[in-house]
Amino acid sequence: MVFKRFVEVGRVALVADGVDKGKLCVIIDVINQRTALVDGPCTGVRRQAMNFNKLWLTDFKIRISPSAREKQVRKRFVEGDIGAKWEKTSWAKKIAMKNKRKTLTDFHRFKLKVLKQQKSRILRGKFNEMKHELKNSS
């Protein structure tokens, strides 16, 4: 297995826990084996030392020098269009879906259930149709 995401200067990561949970940040520098200096000027994460187990590395990387200033980080982040690219990933979509589900009320959940039932009924019908066709043809 080949690793594709590394801890390195410029790596965009997702904050897994804490106040900034769910926000993107950029690794600015590696302080020690446990902590990194991160910053997220476009996403509202303040420059801080953060434990690696709070960081989930993404596929994205921006070109900055170690301990780059906030202005530089912001510029590269916007240039790379990281925010929009992140929104398109299935990872981000899953998170958005999860958050959306949390806000559903009981009535919404019921309507969703009914729609799901309808969908599977249609699918089942189609599947059986195709099965019969295959049976008859052979």
Binding site: T103, T105, D106, F107, K111, V114
Partner: peptide, 24 residues
Amino acid sequence: PSLKQYLAHRFSLSHGQYPHQLMF
């Protein structure tokens, strides 16, 4: 729409659903 159907059904919890985490 579908409110009558909603009222006709009983509420129950399924696996992985916890009432303190749900919105009603």
